[in-house]
Design a protein around this nucleic acid. Structure first.
Lengths: 209, 209, 209, 209
DNA sequence: AATGAATGAGAATTCATTCAT
DNA sequence: TATGAATGAATTCTCATTCAT
């Protein structure tokens, strides 16, 4: 699915506002104002507000998928190194697409069924599959122990990262980092999160739980 | 603040619906229908839909606070055992109040300021303080290593648990547990989560990151 | 019709609020709050909000009527002096019952029919009758000229006085009297109004229009 | 500020209803019904019911202002003749815009502050200024006496005219003019009012009070 | 006599969407 | 392709009144 410039313009405005105020907390008028387009364009291009959200999910989901594929192909790396790469890649994604990941965090809370729930499930399934292959590779090489609960491991990674991103305003206060400029704070989070997740994964993968 | 039966009835209906469909996704009419009360009662008792949400937050937040206080007082336990107790206590809370924690997970995503953001910050601050005391106690006794990033530790616990709760529908599918009856599945999650978090905490607290 | 203390308490609160914010701009709850009584008492005592307004009209109207009767009986006064007395009496009434007269001024604007319109008409009719007798007395004595438009004369008196009362906030600003304390300002208005109306009436009554 | 046909259509309907039933006594639905437009159009065009009232005030206020300016410029007239012209002009205005003037009469009773009170004050200030210039011109030419209370004079004019307009239903009854067709009655009021106000003004301006 | 709780109707406003151009 | 106007449904909230006690 290709999107025109105008469509992307709308999607980006919507992504920001959905992240900021929630789906229902954002009106089509808000989106039109922010995207500097006519109110009717949202229906015109996407059919409805709901379909716009779906478009955002499928667009961002797509771009996440593509890059993950290549990690496994890397040669001359231990499985643990690949896991580390994956962690950094994931952190990168989530930091660069904070708006989207905040929407994701909100929407997955809902017990809806529908296209979006399906898209989220797809996304998770895809990630699970890639990580599974990686873990199994490591297990076969004897690097990792047996009996790893991979979905739980994903929850540790996704949950911790999400929590940090979505509650970074609180984290900043609680860690007394309010003086730090925004950019340095982002870098600080990135580094700290990376270090911690790698440590946790190494532990999970190589020690008995 | 004391609430009458009627008020609690409204709050529980609202809690469920807010968790299910989000704050903006839930209308006052929905709440009135579910709580089997007259539409105007919500305004009558709480002033507004927003204030109703605040009441839920302050009510649930209060009940969380009270129980946490007692853990530290336990005698004849190592600090690590206390941390384990805290983990189980936290899992208990989050499992028993899944509706509320799903609301919490949603709302903390928003960049709002206002009474609710303040209540969340308070809640986090309170938790941080208790955990901090626990960790410091362990550090002084030499049980735990120095230089622990406590807010990050909280993010691991809260994030992982939240993620598991909010995405348990996905977890069930991805772990091929669809055959398991709901109650057993809940118990399974509880146990697995407990085991993992304890393992992670032990690692974080006693090994170098 | 006799009113209990509680009823008078309600009527006074309502009178003030109706004058301040209009009938529709005042809620029964506002009245109950101001009168420090239970919300249900208004319906209980008066039947409805509308009937409360009627009660105020009939009560105040009654008290206005009673005093007017005596003026005509005065002995040893010229008709003009009696008119002067009437003017001062009217100004007294309107100044002492400013709340009520502001309601009156508002309500007479409406094209309603109903008990209140009838009460206003009664009030005006009564006033007209008294003034008419006074004027005719003066005409018979040769003090006043013939062919006086008495309703118009009343409009001059009532209109000018009402306008001054209801727009005194504007009058204060426009006359640069903002420094004057409220009490002195009231006295100033009273005196100036009295002087002017007497002059106008003397002119109307004794010169050709 | 320019208004579209649709906007004027709404404003006229609202003006009539506000005059008839008061601001709070008129619902947006009433306005929409009378103006034959969709209920949402009021918010769409004016933002709110309150802003609609403001629009009416500023629109009518504007039209009043413009015409007044020209009177002073008249050449070859005595100051008294100009005052007479002003009186007739004012009566014209108030007779042609009875709806608006009834709203004005109602609203100025309220002790509110806010945009509308400000607009009324502006209107009054503007009128005062023009009349003042006229009076001072007459005083300098020796036509008028010194020490005239101009705001009081305005109260006589505005109050008498307002009272007559707003209570013309009563006036009709009290003057036994019920048989007169509406149009002739309007003309009768106009003439009588003009004659009286001119007489009163002449008296006020040339005799001692 | 008095009241706190409750109610149904109606208020103003906002919403996502559609339509005529 | 693009838009300003328009719409009907739904929103939250307030209202005057009534009812059970």
């Amino acid at each position: 699915m290709e999107y025109s410039d105008k469509q992307l313009q709308i999607m980006e405005a919507a992504e920001f506002l959905f992240a900021e105020n929630g789906f229902h907390g954002t009106s089509v008028r808000d989106i039109a104002d922010k995207a500097n387009i006519n109110l009717a364009m949202v229906s015109y291009y996407f059919g409805s507000k709901e379909k716009l959200l779906e478009a955002i999910f499928s667009y961002r989901g797509e771009s996440i998928k593509l890059k993950l594929e290549s990690i496994l192909q890397q040669q001359g790396m231990s499985s643990l190194e690949k896991v580390y790469l994956l962690v950094d890649h994931y952190i990168d994604k989530i930091m660069n697409r904070q708006h989207f990941h905040r929407i994701l965090a909100r929407e997955q809370v809902l017990n809806n069924s529908g296209p979006i729930t399906d898209l989220i499930l797809d996304m998770k399934r895809r990630n699970l599959e890639i990580i599974s292959r990686l873990i199994h590779e490591g297990q076969e090489k004897g690097e990792f122990r047996k009996g790893i609960d991979i979905p739980m491991m994903m929850s540790v990674m996704v949950g911790t990262a999400s929590n940090l991103i979505t509650s970074k305003q609180y984290y900043k206060v609680l860690s007394n980092l309010e003086a730090l400029p925004e950019e340095q704070f982002q870098q600080y989070i990135r580094d700290t999160l990376s270090k911690h997740l790698k440590f946790l994964f190494k532990t999970i993968l190589t020690h008995e739980v």
